[in-house]
């Protein structure tokens, strides 16, 4: 049977149910990181998972809902919603292109996702927040500025360094979780079949 894909067909009931879980994983993942005192954020793991198996639109929706929930407590994050959307969209598209079937491909994908998020995030950070984010990475921005760089390059450099580390770990973990999923489950999702073939071979 041919699977229909696209924004009209991707929001099946099972995919819709995936969104709240993706959002919750974003939060709880970040919370575990916090409890374990790890030096990364990993707050897009849920978006990565849902985008990989649910496709770009489901991934994007997970990003939007994550940020909406986050802004209930911190409205500043509302401004960064496009970044979360870009994460879901890019990972979903990469997943369609079969970029999450081997470890080296995942790492290449991490570079692409990092670039995409940096491109979306930097203008928001520079234009709306004068280059600051309110967390520890601002120190790095300051260092770049002190070394004589312009605001745009300082923010861009800081962002890409952070993203490369964060997204590599995030996508690798998501990849290892997805390949553990049962073929029976994956077969019910519009974008799950890529991961089933991998298992059979």
């Amino acid at each position: 049977m041919k699977i229909k894909r696209g924004v009209k067909h991707d929001f099946t009931l099972i995919a819709i149910l995936l969104i709240p879980i993706g959002v919750a994983i974003n939060f709880v993942g970040a919370q575990i990181v916090n409890l374990l005192k790890l030096p990364v954020y990993l707050d897009t793991m849920g978006t990565a998972l849902t985008a990989m198996i649910g496709g770009p639109w489901i991934g994007m929706a997970t990003g939007i809902f994550s940020n909406l929930v986050k802004s209930l407590l911190n409205p500043v994050s509302l401004a960064f919603t496009p970044v979360q959307m870009a994460v879901g969209l890019t990972i979903g598209l990469l997943s369609m292109a079969g970029m999450f079937t081997k470890v080296w491909k995942v790492l290449v994908a991490a570079v692409i996702v990092s670039l995409a998020t940096t491109i979306v995030a930097s203008p928001i950070q520079v234009l709306m927040f004068g280059g600051a984010t309110g967390n520890s990475s601002d120190a790095l921005v300051a260092t770049f500025l002190a070394s004589g760089q312009q605001m745009w390059t300082a923010v861009f450099s800081t962002k890409i360094i952070n993203e490369l580390i964060d997204k590599s770990i995030c996508l690798l973990i998501a990849y290892f979780i997805v390949i553990k999923m049962s073929p029976r489950y994956l077969s019910k999702l519009n974008y799950g079949s890529i991961f089933i073939k991998k298992k059979a071979s």
Partner: peptide, 14 residues
Amino acid sequence: FVPILSPLVLGSIA
């Protein structure tokens, strides 16, 4: 990290 996260994720997704 992974032993904590993965049962949580797989359980809720299943």
